[in-house]
């Protein structure tokens, strides 16, 4: 539909071409762009706004059927308080933070170490390691769902947060993302460092980390958001073991049906959904630069 809009606009123009100057045409095109993009952005944000309005209705509020509430009526913040209390959100927040932060940090070290060695060091067996890693990039992790579950049982970590942290740590895609960037670090800098007596690990932390900071930041943020939003593997482990230390925010909200009757449930759920999205939005606002750069890096491939 949108495509045809553009085409129509373009085919309609040549007829009037003589009358309308280039400048005028350019201006109408610009206006069209702004209006079109604004409409899309507006409709994308609208559901979240409606959720927010929904979340601030007081529990006894009865909406009129057939009416959309776009502004606050019967405003209260008690839903946020209730959902935190009854959804055990603080406890879940602890689990989520532990899961997300430790997974992101460990995964970053793994990816940087592998990326650095595979892009900058010369050693026997490098080609074999690289080809095998490359070849397995095609295999979706979902194939190994049962096997990873079995492994967490075998290691005895299926009832602890470790069970959702340890399995996916080595992200091969991330390794190649990072190593593609690190190829551009000049060898001379690394050589100079080792002449000055830098060990491998010091080189990694003092030189490679700062020089590859943009790509590492991008990887960290993407991983952080992905881990924060993850629910499949935690849900598998939680539903089979029922351990509290696997109860992440996503699971908490997914299973949250307080059965208060009326519309109270929806209001509480809306409040919870807003709460679990806030960290993502904060991340986005703070690290926008790196998030919006990820296209650059994956476009290289």
């Amino acid at each position: 539909m949108n495509k045809t809009d553009v085409k129509q606009a373009d085919t309609a123009k040549p007829k009037k071409q003589k009358k309308i100057s280039m400048k005028r045409r350019e201006r109408t095109f610009q206006a069209f762009c702004y209006i079109f993009l604004t409409i899309i952005a507006f409709f994308q944000c609208m559901p979240f706004w409606l959720k927010l309005v929904d979340a601030t209705h007081s529990p006894d509020f009865l909406p009129e059927p057939g009416k959309i509430y776009v502004w606050f009526t019967d405003f209260t913040l008690s839903n946020f308080k209730s959902v935190i209390e009854y959804g055990k959100l603080f406890q879940a927040l602890g689990v989520s933070l532990l899961h997300t932060v430790s997974f992101t940090a460990l995964s970053m070290f793994v990816v940087v170490a592998l990326g650095y060695v595979l892009s900058k060091k010369r050693f026997r067996g490098k080609k074999i390691v690289t080809t095998i890693l490359m070849a397995t990039m095609m295999i979706p992790g979902e194939v190994m769902l049962a096997a990873n579950y079995k492994l967490t049982i075998a290691f005895g970590i299926n009832t602890s947060t470790l069970g959702i942290i340890l399995p996916g740590l080595v992200n091969v895609f991330g390794v190649f993302l990072v190593s593609q960037y690190m190829v551009n670090i000049p060898d001379s800098v690394l050589e100079a460092a080792s002449i000055d007596g830098c060990g491998e690990f010091r080189k990694l932390f003092r030189i490679v980390f700062p020089m590859a900071k943009p790509i590492i930041m991008t990887y960290v943020i993407i991983t952080f958001i992905g881990t924060w939003n993850e629910y499949l593997f935690p849900m598998i482990l939680y539903s089979t073991s029922g351990s509290e230390s696997l109860y992440t925010l996503q699971l908490a909200m997914q299973n949250f049906y307080p059965k208060w009757g009326g519309n109270a449930d929806t209001y509480l759920r809306s409040a919870g959904m807003i709460l679990i999205t806030i960290p993502i939005i904060i991340m986005y606002i703070v690290f926008q630069k790196y998030i919006l750069n990820q296209g650059n890096t994956s476009g290289i491939k």
Partner: peptide, 29 residues
Amino acid sequence: FKNEISAYSIIGIPLIWWVIFFVIAFIWA
């Protein structure tokens, strides 16, 4: 084996990790 020692000392643990949770898991499945 200077190069190999320094290289594998860095990537050894991640690689073993990967073998356990990817290769072995794949074969198991």
